[in-house]
């Protein structure tokens, strides 16, 4: 028995090379992030189609719905933008003194790539609608007492 234990200890202590932890590099982070976006999209769709039915919630539902739609568009846009980032080398940038000053839009993908960089144009209105929805809910509560 003792010999068996000593043998196991010997085997465990002898290896010269060990891959104990999986390395995560390259595309893995990208895939994970995109998966996150997909989950975000699914989450939005769940909220959208399983809206609550309580009376007070209906007061801000329209604004909340706009928020969800805009957020969904934002996710799609950014999801697309991230994939296009991988192909950024095929797009033509204009650099002056090491600084990027322009971009050549010569295809639909280059347009989408460029527009994905302006995602705040969607995200800000989305959040504004969230604020409006919250304000209406609060107002509804104050009116109802």
């Amino acid at each position: 028995m003792l010999l068996k234990i000593l043998f196991v200890l010997f085997v465990l202590m002898c290896p010269s090379l060990c891959w104990a932890v999986q390395p995560h590099g390259g595309l893995e982070g990208m895939v994970s992030h995109e998966a996150g976006h997909l989950l975000f999209i699914l989450g939005i769709l769940f909220i959208f189609f399983y809206s609550p039915q309580s009376d007070w919630f209906k007061f801000g539902w329209r604004q909340f719905k706009y928020f969800l739609v805009l957020l969904l568009l934002w996710n799609i846009l950014t999801f697309s933008g991230h994939w296009l980032d991988l192909a950024a080398g095929s797009f033509e940038f204009v650099n002056v003194d090491g600084h990027r000053v322009g971009f050549v839009i010569d295809s639909l993908l280059s347009f989408i790539f460029y527009f994905s960089k302006l995602d705040h144009l969607i995200l800000v209105p989305a959040l504004i609608f969230l604020v409006l929805a919250l304000q209406r809910w609060i107002k509804a509560q104050e009116v109802q007492g």
Binding site: F93, V94, R100, V101, G102, F103, V104, I105, D106, Y114, K117, L118, D119, H120, L121, L123, V124, L127, I128, L130, V131
Partner: peptide, 24 residues
């Protein structure tokens, strides 16, 4: 079509600031 890049930068900067404000 050569498109300026600065709108991207400024939308990103201003948008981020606005988003932070709205988020709070």
């Amino acid at each position: 079509m050569n498109t300026p890049w600065w709108p991207v930068v400024w939308v990103d900067i201003l948008g981020s600031l606005v988003v932070v404000f709205i988020a709070f």
